[in-house]
């Protein structure tokens, strides 16, 4: 019975994370994008603590706490501050329309399921389904990075991709905590570097639209 509940609940949480990824993909307003990212991180923290309880691994509670503190609270508030200081309140223009993006996203999820389910036929059921969900989240994060023009939303795409990695990490029983911590630390470093870059790009071009960077590259040809 416990196993059944663990199975259902972990899938539910993974499913919520995936739905939030789709929401991120379709959302145009920056404020809402940051809120959705924070919500995804909070659900991820809940999923991590649920896995910690059902697998009986104390380390996963640490992961949950770190996720909640860093990605649920600290990074979103930092992003909000950046957006405020750079005066990025207006809506953002995706490079690709919402409908084609959604179609591509659904195709990516289908591909992830097609890849993961047959290749992991021998392993535990929980791990299989969760791995498919995690790979979908990673692919949707990549898609978000591809379809957005603004550097800030590209970074949120990257951070959401990293949420997918953590989701994969927590659902595999017995993965050392060190791996998750290393990934989290890497993302923190990347966030700092991105933050610095935002201000440099903004100072130089009065905009975070990366199209300006590309024209610079062309003039150096």
């Amino acid at each position: 019975m416990t196993h059944g509940v663990a199975y259902d609940l972990s899938h539910l949480l993974g499913g919520i994370i995936l739905v939030l990824s789709f929401a991120l993909l379709s959302q145009r307003r920056l404020d809402a994008v940051i809120t959705l990212y924070a919500a995804q991180a909070i659900v991820l923290a809940v999923a991590a603590s649920w896995q910690g309880w059902s697998q009986g691994v104390t380390g996963l509670y640490v992961t949950a706490a770190v996720t909640l503190a860093a990605k649920g609270v600290a990074i979103p508030s930092a992003l909000r501050r950046i957006a405020h200081r750079l005066n990025l309140r207006r809506s953002i223009e995706p490079a690709l329309g919402v409908f084609p993006t959604m179609v591509l996203g659904v195709a990516f999820v289908a591909l992830a399921v097609l890849v993961v389910l047959p290749t992991t036929a021998q392993s535990q059921a929980v791990t299989r389904e969760d791995l498919a969900l995690a790979l979908s989240v990673v692919l949707l994060g990549l898609l978000m990075m591809m379809t957005r023009r603004s550097a800030l939303t590209q970074v949120i795409g990257f951070l959401s991709l990293e949420n997918g990695l953590i989701l994969a990490a927590i659902s595999i029983a017995g993965l050392p905590l060190l791996v998750e911590l290393a990934v989290a630390f890497l993302v923190l470093l990347a966030a700092i570097v991105f933050g610095v870059f935002f201000f440099r790009i903004r100072d130089r071009f009065d905009s975070l639209d990366l199209g300006h960077l590309d024209t610079v590259g062309r003039t150096h040809l």
Binding site: T119, L142, L143, L210, G211
Partner: peptide, 22 residues
Amino acid sequence: LTIRRSLMVMVTVLILFLAAIA
């Protein structure tokens, strides 16, 4: 390539790889 294009190249290669596995 522009930043988004190079991202696209990488993602396309990744997707092709996954599709081949599938």
